[in-house]
Amino acid sequence: MEDIELKALWQAYDQKLERSLALNLHLVKELQTQKVRSALRSLTWYKVLLIVLGLLWTGILGWLMYRLSGPQLISFTISAGMVVLFNLVGIVSYIRHLVLIHRIDNSDSVLATQKHLAELQASTLRVMRILYLQMPFYTTFLYTPAMFVHGGLWFWLSTVPVTLAFTAASIWLYRNIRLENSHKKWFRRMFDGPEWRPVTRAIAFLEEIDAFEREDAIKK
């Protein structure tokens, strides 16, 4: 099929639409006065849900820190404090994302808007890798100063190695959960659930946009 035939076919399509496309003006008027569920609403609600859960968990930990204090519980206070700190980082990041979602301008160029949107979806991963750093602090909640003095072999051979393993795992995850690793098997297995599908799709789409842009950069 030649160029001219393609365009002739398109013109036939245009004529067909011209003849038979009916616009319901009454419904457009109705739409102008209604609050419609936006395509971005699911992304917004997901971030709002994470903020609410983060605030709840931070509140519970804050309350426990206030109620359970004393020299014997110093490890709990420090651990819970660190977990609260990481959660606050997550909450602030998600609030920032909500502001950015609100600022998305569909009348901007297609590549700019789509890149912005896909980055926002993929950014859930960036927050997640920071949140993984709080993992070891969950293992130190019940440590007491007495354990270090009188804990004996059991403490040093079972409890401490668990904390060290969690520390190593959290640092490894922090360093390796990156978009560049999204093709690796462990990454795909880890983020395989339906809740991660929008994020992994966003990553794939970012790559598609980048390929478009890379070609563009070469030509410039």
Partner: peptide, 16 residues
């Protein structure tokens, strides 16, 4: 997610 039950744009049958 429609708040509207009918279509805003309808393509009526056309036999080209």
């Amino acid at each position: 997610s429609s708040v509207l039950t009918d279509s805003i744009l309808d393509l009526v049958p056309d036999n080209g």
